[in-house]
Simulated scan of single mutants.
Amino acid sequence: MINKLKTMGRLNITILLIAMTLFCFAISITRYLITGTKVFLFLNWNLFLALIPWTISSLMLIYNLNKKPPLVLLIISWVLFFPNSPYILTDLFHLRLHGSAPVWFDLVLILSFAWTGLVYGLTSLMDIEKMLSNYLSQKWVNTVIVSFLFLAGFGIYLGRYLRWNSWDIIKNPLGLAVDIIDRFINPFSHPRTWGMTLLMGILLNMIYFSIKFIKVKPELKGI
């Protein structure tokens, strides 16, 4: 496994993500030991959900599961879990609800989880983009990626305000479908749905393409 990660140039980011995850776990446990309150321990579960899309895309790359039939099914599975990665950003809503620790400590704690979850998600999205590039032109790849990020914004709304999660596609598909269809049939009755989807989608696109462009090393001329 390590050799495969080295070959793919993925070992460093994997080690970094493991270290970031351990830091998140450690700081949440530290808060619990100091304050005796469990209010932010749930972030560890949210982070576990956030690494699922990264795990799916990593296995797809490592085991070369990018042939058309399994690729479509695996990407559908990936899409269902992808919103869990940026979802932790919304846990900032909890920042001032619990005063058992200094606000600055809780800010660092939540941002650590949020950023780690985001890196899991965006890394996996880059994996998906790479695999799609084998079948689609760059124009269509970009269109799909932008769409995925807006879908993530919609998924974040479903999780934060309607309390649906990825498992409900199996546990309660009818109830989930009713809520989703209602928002498409009666869009003007749900302004918060589309307001959050739009703004969160724009934010996620800004973050993703900013990181993507920063990764591109410009040619240094005349130096």
Rank of each mutant, 00 (worst) to 15 (best):
L65S: 05
G9P: 08
K6G: 00
F40Q: 12
L71S: 02
I18T: 10
I13D: 04
W104I: 12
W54Q: 08
G121E: 07
I56M: 06
I29W: 13
L51P: 01
R31H: 12
M60F: 04
V103G: 00
L51I: 13
M60Q: 11
F113T: 05
G121I: 04
D106Q: 09
P83L: 05
L118G: 03
N64T: 11
L51K: 01
D91A: 03
K68V: 14
R96N: 14
Y120Q: 02
F82P: 04
F105I: 09
I56L: 14
L59N: 06
L92I: 15
N44M: 12
K67N: 13
L22M: 14
L89I: 14
F113Q: 03
L59E: 07
F105N: 02
Y63A: 09
I56G: 08
L43N: 11
A19N: 03
S77K: 00
R10W: 05
W45C: 01
S100F: 14
L92E: 02
F113Y: 15
F42N: 04
L74E: 05
L118W: 07
V79H: 06
M8E: 15
N44Y: 02
N84C: 07
F93L: 14
I88S: 06
R31D: 11
F48P: 00
I110K: 02
L47R: 03
L111V: 14
N66V: 02
L92M: 15
A19C: 11
I29V: 15
L17C: 07
T55S: 13
T7F: 10
L33C: 00
L61V: 11
W115D: 00
Y63L: 13
F23K: 04
P83H: 04
F48A: 12
P69M: 08
Y87V: 07
T90S: 15
P83G: 05
Y87H: 08
W78K: 05
T30C: 06
V119F: 13
I76S: 09
Y120V: 01
P53A: 06
I18E: 00
T14D: 02
T116V: 08
S85D: 07
G9T: 02
G117E: 04
L92F: 14
A19H: 02
F81C: 12
S28P: 06
W54C: 05
L47V: 06
T7I: 10
L43D: 04
V79T: 14
